[in-house]
Amino acid sequence: MPQDNANPAIFVARGLTKVYRMGEVEVHALRGIDLTLYRGELVVLLGPSGSGKSTLLNILGGLDAPSGGEVRYLDHTLTGASESELTRFRREHVGFVFQFYNLIPSLTARENVAAVTEISKSPMRPEDALALVGLGNRLDHFPAQLSGGEQQRVAIARAVAKNPAVLLCDEPTGALDSATGVVVLEVLEKVNRELGTLTVLITHNAGIADMADRVIRLSDGQIAEEHRNAHKRSASELSW
Rank of each mutant, 00 (worst) to 15 (best):
90 R>A: 08
97 V>G: 10
53 K>M: 00
101 Y>F: 15
48 P>L: 01
100 F>D: 13
90 R>S: 06
76 H>W: 13
94 V>L: 01
54 S>H: 03
114 A>Y: 15
50 G>W: 01
116 V>D: 11
121 K>T: 12
87 T>I: 09
72 R>Q: 08
73 Y>E: 04
85 E>V: 02
71 V>R: 14
47 G>Y: 07
107 L>R: 12
94 V>W: 05
78 L>I: 06
75 D>H: 10
57 L>N: 05
106 S>D: 08
66 P>H: 08
110 R>V: 13
108 T>Y: 13
91 R>D: 02
55 T>V: 00
104 I>K: 13
124 M>P: 03
60 L>D: 00
83 E>G: 03
78 L>V: 04
104 I>G: 09
84 S>M: 13
126 P>V: 10
138 R>Q: 08
104 I>Y: 13
107 L>E: 09
60 L>H: 06
105 P>A: 12
135 L>R: 08
59 I>Y: 09
137 N>S: 15
44 V>F: 04
137 N>A: 15
49 S>C: 00
121 K>P: 05
87 T>N: 10
42 L>Y: 06
112 N>P: 10
81 A>Q: 13
109 A>K: 09
51 S>I: 00
67 S>D: 01
96 F>T: 11
93 H>Y: 13
48 P>N: 03
65 A>N: 05
59 I>R: 09
105 P>M: 14
71 V>Q: 11
95 G>F: 15
123 P>C: 11
64 D>Q: 10
95 G>A: 12
111 E>N: 07
80 G>V: 12
91 R>C: 06
135 L>V: 06
58 N>C: 02
63 L>P: 02
67 S>C: 02
77 T>V: 10
117 T>V: 03
114 A>K: 11
98 F>Y: 14
135 L>E: 07
129 A>M: 09
66 P>D: 04
77 T>N: 04
112 N>R: 06
141 H>W: 07
117 T>G: 04
53 K>T: 05
94 V>P: 02
57 L>Y: 04
117 T>R: 12
90 R>H: 10
109 A>Y: 11
101 Y>M: 12
78 L>W: 13
92 E>Y: 14
84 S>C: 06
114 A>Q: 14
52 G>V: 03
140 D>Y: 08
94 V>D: 04
115 A>D: 07
113 V>A: 05
132 L>F: 15
53 K>G: 00
76 H>C: 00
86 L>C: 08
131 A>V: 06
127 E>V: 14
91 R>F: 07
119 I>L: 10
83 E>I: 05
136 G>D: 05
122 S>D: 15
68 G>F: 00
122 S>N: 15
67 S>N: 01
122 S>T: 14
70 E>K: 15
141 H>S: 12
69 G>V: 02
106 S>H: 13
